[in-house]
Design a protein around this nucleic acid. Sequence first.
DNA 1: TTAGTGATATATCGGAGCGATATATAGTTG
DNA 2: CAACTATATATCGCTCCGATATATCACTAA
Lengths: 181, 181
Amino acid sequence: MELSSTAYVILGMIRRQPRSGYEIKALVDGSTRFFWAASYGQIYPELKRLSEAGLVEGVDEPRGERRRTVYAITEAGEQALRDWLRRPPQTYEMRDEGLLKLFFAEALPPREAVEVLRSMRRHRLADLEQLQELEPKVIAKDAPFPLMVLRGGIEFTQWFAGWCERMETQLLGPARKERSS
Amino acid sequence: MELSSTAYVILGMIRRQPRSGYEIKALVDGSTRFFWAASYGQIYPELKRLSEAGLVEGVDEPRGERRRTVYAITEAGEQALRDWLRRPPQTYEMRDEGLLKLFFAEALPPREAVEVLRSMRRHRLADLEQLQELEPKVIAKDAPFPLMVLRGGIEFTQWFAGWCERMETQLLGPARKERSS
DNA sequence: TTAGTGATATATCGGAGCGATATATAGTTG
DNA sequence: CAACTATATATCGCTCCGATATATCACTAA
């Protein structure tokens, strides 16, 4: 039976304790979102499929009048999660509109081309702040692998911002060709 | 009029010379694919839209019996491309199944968790080879911005592979907790 | 007290993106 | 000349994502 990676995100997120779809979404948004996002439109249907396949088990736990189903992982689900973890990762994708603009920046006058890099760096630095704010929370959870991934993300973001800065100066340097001081 | 980033990929790719949809796809696959992919299912319909909007102009240039339309950018198209380049980039996304598996690697015995990092590193090194093979071609084209982006990609991939290696040794080190030498 | 705001909870829709495939013709090579 | 690869266009199904709809609940400010 073929499951999407998003299915395994769900299995991984409920491995420690049962959770509702809403909670899973919140967890994803606060952690894996930087390298694997998931929307409600994926999570809720996927929970149903996983339930039918016997990999999770839903229990109604309404809060007051509001219905609510929390899903727990089953033995088969844990097995499926481990099997997936053992298979070599396949998907690696990146979509970066900044790099795309930089790629075509020849169509702009040099001074404006630098602006693309500045925007990219600003974005990375904003991202960096978000990641750094997460760090104490992840440390508190005592989750070594999420912390490793987070610190990797921080290091990468710093590298990226630094690269943008270096490319900015590289562009500004030889730009003296036109209108030298 | 709202255009997708993929529309601007097309405009950028035909800026220097008119090209067919097939040629555009080939160019994308050999360059921007690493940070912005595009399929035939996007390119051909988008070319029609761009043509209706007057940003490109299609001319029939059959080769023998096989029909073929090459598209050239118009003045309006060049303007639209420059306007887009001047707007700050929005989209930045990443999907990395390896990081996702590493995030949940607690569910595996430590020795197998290291395997995730090894797979990731192998993938990055294979990618690195591909990128390095592109470099002489891009140098020959004398395209400074594509070359900058490519070298950035190479540097990033090297950083990523190095990070994987460092994390592997980090995992192997304190693993002596269980069954010490 | 009640109106408003924000969090919890589930569900669905449209659009974009992507891989795969279908259909042809053209050129190349064993 | 048969088989294979490259050129060229088109489409289908699937996943994914953002946005939105619908409720209920908790809290708070007028």
